[in-house]
Design a protein around this nucleic acid. Structure first.
Lengths: 234, 234
DNA sequence: CCGGGGCTTCGGCGGCCGCCGAAGCATCCC
DNA sequence: GGGATGCTTCGGCGGCCGCCGAAGCCCCGG
């Protein structure tokens, strides 16, 4: 069975510290240049170039040229899901007293995860919507209830209307909170809407998000989320 | 961010050919001894021992002693999902004219994927249930319809009754067929039932399944699946 | 047209790690 | 108890691969 070899090859590709750092840097869904990725991984551009070439050839990354820059991004949501899963398992086990700095704290409060929101904010949103009967989430999947659809329409979320049947959403286990939040099409639409409403914006240099004053008001009114709900536990 | 290091470490663990082969061998959900895994990976027992120790310490495998044997299995469904995703991505890209032997052909027709059915059989089941309005499957998730619940009860499938709301099921992209089939709790329950009914049984030495005469009849009566439906394309 | 910056290719060095032989433990069977 | 079997630990060898310096290519701006 040579599919084993392909399995090992793909995993090994992710398994290098420099490449892993670059992939993680791309987990916010944006496209970055080779130079930015090199500095994110702490290596020289020429080394990064080699890595990026291999990742692209393997179908993990996609690249598009724009002038003299070359922008690299994750090739597909499947890649993002894969890294999510890896992070989940990686976070689960060893936990050897990682010193969590302030940057990390910002990340834990709110961030993007490829195309949807993650962190305590996302978990709080999922909790609120579940408590209100707007969505149902289990380990296997999730769906929006009729009440939820009405709520989302009111919020201006442009989730694809249910063709026939229910609008499903994918649960995504938060690596920092170890609780599920909303991913999939619905998660992406929610995230887009929050940006459009100016409720969140990217913090300088990183995946972390800043919740704007309008955002605090919006999340309170729409989901009943208070600032205390997003403070770290302990 | 030291979670990057953990990410790379976990991926690198899977990224070794010998370890990948052992993990793949465990993807049928059974527990194997170190010796069996060593031969599956084509290495000596002492080398396998080292690998198994590392995989277990990282939380990818679980081990239980039974007499002088030590049985190793995947530590959790999360690990199985991860490898699934890796196989999906690995199968997607390179495709360098892999000679598919007869063993591979058996694998493509029917096999187990950790705790549920996979291969053409599983895809045909998912297709039939979808066509009959018994389940709905999208990329984001899936659910059983009321009609589907009734059907499953009639079949004797012991899927946990819906607590409140719908019984979700997880879609799983088949690495050989590139089409989704049913995973999650429902997939596991269906698989268990098929074994209990004697419709399928394990082929000697491998993940491949053999469909019994009773199975052919059962799959025809229950799902309308004909032998032609499971023949390879081309 | 020419200078400069971003990116790539090439070559060689260095370290990590997977591999096996040999030896040591544990468990079961007779 | 003796011997066989299954598994582990130890030590040393060998190869793969990630790293950077230097040089070349491409695209932009002036």
């Amino acid at each position: 069975m040579s599919s084993n070899a392909a399995l090992a090859e793909t995993a090994a590709l992710i398994g290098d510290p420099a490449r892993a750092a670059m992939l993680a840097a791309l987990m916010d869904g944006r496209a970055l240049t080779a130079g930015e990725l090199a500095s994110a991984a702490g290596i020289t551009p020429q080394t990064a170039s080699g890595h990026l070439g291999r990742l692209t050839e393997a179908g993990l990354l996609a690249m598009e040229r724009q002038g003299r820059h070359r922008y690299h991004r994750l090739a597909s949501p499947a890649v993002a899901r894969l890294i999510e899963g890896l992070l989940e398992l990686a976070a689960a086990r060893p936990r050897r007293a990682v010193a969590t700095g302030p940057r990390d704290a910002a990340l834990r409060q709110a961030r993007t995860c490829y195309d949807h929101l993650a962190g305590r904010l996302a978990v709080a949103i999922a909790d609120a919507m579940t408590a209100r009967g707007q969505i149902e989430l289990t380990a296997d999947g999730g769906a929006v209830t009729p009440a939820g659809e009405a709520f989302l329409v009111g919020l201006g979320v442009a989730a694809a209307p249910t063709r026939r049947g229910r609008l499903f959403c994918r649960p995504c286990l938060d690596w920092s909170e170890r609780r599920p939040h909303v991913a999939g099409v619905l998660g992406a639409a929610l995230c887009t809407r929050c940006f459009a409403l100016g409720w969140v914006r990217r913090r300088a240099g990183g995946r972390a998000l800043e919740i704007t004053p309008a955002g605090w008001a919006g999340f309170r009114d729409a989901f009943g989320i208070a600032p205390e709900d997003l403070r770290g536990p302990a």
